[in-house]
Measured scan of single mutants.
Amino acid sequence: GKELVLALYDYQEKSPREVTMKKGDILTLLNSTNKDWWKVEVKATANDKTYERQGFVPAAYVKKL
Rank of each mutant, 00 (worst) to 15 (best):
V42F: 08
T20Q: 04
Y61E: 01
Q12R: 11
Q54A: 10
G55F: 08
K2A: 12
M21Y: 01
K43F: 13
E18A: 04
E52W: 15
W38M: 02
T20Y: 03
N47H: 12
L29S: 01
E18K: 04
E52T: 15
L65M: 08
K64L: 14
K23I: 05
Q12W: 11
S15W: 06
N47D: 12
L30S: 02
R53K: 11
G1N: 13
S15R: 09
A59H: 02
K43W: 13
D10M: 03
V19Y: 03
A7N: 03
Q12D: 15
Y51S: 11
V40N: 00
N34S: 08
V5C: 13
D48Q: 09
M21P: 00
A44Q: 12
K2R: 13
R53S: 04
T50N: 11
L6A: 06
T33K: 11
A59I: 01
L65Y: 08
R53P: 03
K39L: 15
K63Q: 14
E41C: 14
Y9L: 08
V40S: 01
L27F: 07
V57I: 08
Y9V: 10
K35G: 08
P58L: 05
N31I: 07
K35M: 10
Y51A: 13
Y11P: 01
V57K: 00
D25T: 06
V5N: 00
K39I: 13
K49M: 13
A60T: 12
T33Y: 08
K39S: 07
N34K: 06
A59G: 04
S32E: 14
A7Q: 00
E3N: 10
V40R: 00
K35D: 11
P16H: 10
K2C: 13
K14S: 07
P16C: 12
G24Y: 05
V5H: 03
L4H: 10
K63G: 08
K39F: 15
K43R: 13
K64P: 10
Y11V: 00
V57A: 02
K22N: 08
E3V: 14
Y9K: 14
G24S: 01
M21R: 00
G55Q: 00
E18P: 03
K2N: 11
G1T: 13
T20V: 02
T20C: 05
R17Y: 13
